[in-house]
Design a protein around this nucleic acid. Sequence first.
DNA 1: GTCTATAAAGTGATAGAC
DNA 2: GTCTATCACTTTATAGAC
Lengths: 222, 222
Amino acid sequence: MLKRSFESSGRTTEIHPPVSSPASTKDRILGAAEQLFAQRGFDGASLRQLTTAAGVNLAAVNYHFGSKEKLVEEVFRRRLDALNARRMEALARLGDEHPPTLEEVLDAYIRPALELSHDNHGSLFMRVLARAFAEHDDTLRQFLSENYGHVLRQFTAEFARLLPQLSKQELYWRIDLVTGALTHAMSGFGIIQRKSDVSEQSHREQTVQHLIRFAAAGLSHP
Amino acid sequence: MLKRSFESSGRTTEIHPPVSSPASTKDRILGAAEQLFAQRGFDGASLRQLTTAAGVNLAAVNYHFGSKEKLVEEVFRRRLDALNARRMEALARLGDEHPPTLEEVLDAYIRPALELSHDNHGSLFMRVLARAFAEHDDTLRQFLSENYGHVLRQFTAEFARLLPQLSKQELYWRIDLVTGALTHAMSGFGIIQRKSDVSEQSHREQTVQHLIRFAAAGLSHP
DNA sequence: GTCTATAAAGTGATAGAC
DNA sequence: GTCTATCACTTTATAGAC
């Protein structure tokens, strides 16, 4: 699935909907799509299931998004625009005082994703993202690379600076392995039980530290 | 997809087909299914595409396997029976002389999978396996757990013995992260370019060492 | 912007001839 | 064991009324 596409994608000028208004039809569709794509996959979730879950008419998907394929892209765009902007901000903020450490750079990459996982059902989105990785779909990969490739390149450059002893090939290998580990872990994150005597915030903080230490060990081992 | 099932699954007594006979209809279907499931997913690949690719009649799938769902299970069984048997043998062989090291245990787990990736189109199967992970499908997870869970438990016990300083929870976390990294890496393994001046065997040996060192660092960091 | 109705094609599965 | 033909349904997408 997902063949080509790319046009204005029907987005209106209003990106953030008014705070306390009832969700618009578009947003209801996007929410239901995220949930059903996470649970059943892009092919497994039909427009009928999706519009029923959203409480909107079947034809609304084509009216608002043009096609199922464009809807898929919009599901990614809605989360990744904000997520990657926050990663870039966090990275930029690091350089202000002193050259950042490996752990700080990893924090800038990982923490925004984990915060998303706890906000508004974002852990569902991490499962959608994990599916996209497993898909190996060229068109989807190209979409992600064109729109968000600069983020990965920026972080890779930081890692290269911090790990000068590694060859380019070696570094790419390790980043790929770390990416796999993080995607896998975060897509299962909603499932992991949090003990009731631990606050949500401290649970997340523990998880961030876990992932950072694991990633740092995997990147920098001799 | 994949709702329940489990019966004799139609397997005949002959597990390994005669060496140099032309592939049977069943094997042709399994081969085409593996390829198309890897490329398009379990829902994305239709029985019509699949039987056309295999050069067999549409009705042959239901005749030989009973349903699409049972065919999916057989695709897993065909590879995992052999793969996990080799892992268990490798692990058993380690204990013969001396208590094994962490790297040796990881070798017993990783090497059979990488050998599969180079044999008969096995890298396609690793992509199918990566999809199964991303699916989060309860029935599929249960099938894998019931049939191959003992392998993971055995290796986990070895890791626990070798890393006594880690709590159970901590150990499970790290094993989960390592699993994500390995699955991700191996499912992309067929894609990675091998330089023409390196023999296939030494390339694989390099890769095994890469993965082992990464996994060891991720499991045992302080 | 939302609805119904429907087109056109694809889906898994099966009956029954050979 | 393999084939054709077909059933009963679902799929995405769209035309046209409101």
